[in-house]
């Protein structure tokens, strides 16, 4: 019986730290948002304290987007959830943690900033990769994370499909053929976007890495610009990273006010500037104008425009037996 106090000691300690600050928020996020929230959280804490006098501690949890959403369903007490595709938040709505119309509660369908899918090629672009069609040439090795386990991989897949569809004379059949040929050129399907980057940069496997624009910038920061060039395709997909308040949790904890302020400030000039500094494309026109130089204009499409909705895209393409599975089953 001596074990019990010991067992709960850490929980008490946790409660103890919470008592110092007035409010503790838990932001459950996906893998690559660390850098952004590391910069954004202190900014919010200052602004919120100046405005209300309350001190807020923001805790972060990071992991694969869908895995994180499942954890929240399983009881991880997230005040806010910041994901990389809408279906991960829809899941919470299905389970009654937040209302189905969550996307309409904040501006821009609750998407504070976007990114686009771009190519990283070896320095000097030895394989002369300019656009999507170059990725399916024989002999070109493409590094893409596994669309089954990675949002990054899913965006790449959908981008490839959507751009093939929008070519002159494009059709579903042609898009399918294009995507099949693309994945035939993929030698390694890593489980996540960061693992794919490591395969490309550290292991020197492949000729081109398809990833998000902000990730390309992270790679440059961490590994230097000497090893690769960024190539912008003519048409790309808009990667939208939605955020939402988890009603059930904030109402239980009584943190709705702080959590709401936390999310709304993402759209402020300061929040948008932090986003731009992290190479996320801001929604705010002024901030976008100020940082226009670092975001070359690229024609993009939204997932919902081409595939109806994220849910439909998931069901048709990535569910078991979906198009992605069929591509591999054909062999």
């Amino acid at each position: 019986m001596k074990l019990r106090p010991l067992l709960f000691a850490p929980l008490l300690a946790l409660a103890g730290t919470a008592a110092h600050a007035d409010v503790t928020l838990l932001n459950v996020s996906y893998d690559v948002m660390r850098d952004f929230y590391k910069d954004y959280n202190p900014l919010f804490q200052q602004a919120y304290q100046a405005k209300t006098g309350e001190r807020v501690t923001v805790q972060q949890s990071h992991g694969g987007s869908s895995k994180q959403a499942l954890s929240v369903v399983g009881g991880l007490a997230a005040d806010v959830i910041t994901m990389n595709q809408a279906t991960d938040i829809d899941l919470l709505a299905d389970k009654g943690l937040l209302p189905a119309n969550w996307a309409r509660r904040l501006p821009n369908d609750s998407v504070p900033f976007n990114s686009i899918t771009v190519f990283l090629v070896r320095k000097g672009n030895p394989k002369a990769i300019r656009d999507w069609n170059d990725l399916v040439r024989p002999g070109v090795q493409v590094i893409v994370p596994n669309p089954k386990t990675s949002g990054n991989g899913r965006y790449t897949y959908l981008a490839a499909w959507g751009q093939a569809l929008r070519q002159p004379g494009g059709s579903e059949a042609k898009a399918r053929d294009f995507v099949s040929r693309l994945f035939r050129n993929v030698p390694v399907l890593d489980s996540g976007g960061r693992a794919a980057t490591t395969t490309f940069i550290q292991r020197q496997v492949g000729d081109v890495l398809v990833t998000f624009e902000n990730e390309a910038e992270m790679v440059a920061r961490e590994f230097g610009r000497g090893g690769f060039d960024v190539v912008y395709p003519k048409l790309s997909v808009l990667a939208e990273n939605p955020v939402a308040l988890v009603d059930k949790v904030v109402d239980k904890k009584g943190t709705r006010q702080a959590a709401d302020a936390y999310l709304r400030q993402l759209w402020s000039v300061e929040g948008q500037t932090v986003a731009a500094q992290n190479y996320l494309r801001p929604q705010h026109p002024q901030v976008a104008a100020r940082y226009a130089a670092q975001f070359p204009p690229v024609k993009t499409f939204r997932v919902a425009e081409v595939f109806g909705s994220w849910r439909a895209a998931m069901k048709t393409h990535f569910a078991d037996g979906g198009v992605f599975d069929q591509i591999y089953a054909k062999k």
Binding site: Q60, H62, G63, R194
Partner: peptide
Amino acid sequence: VSVVSGHIRGETNTIPLHVEILYNEY
């Protein structure tokens, strides 16, 4: 542990989970 931890930084991360996070941060 990764499934049941919740990955809250500074709270429920064990060393192996912390390693993964750092690795993913390059």
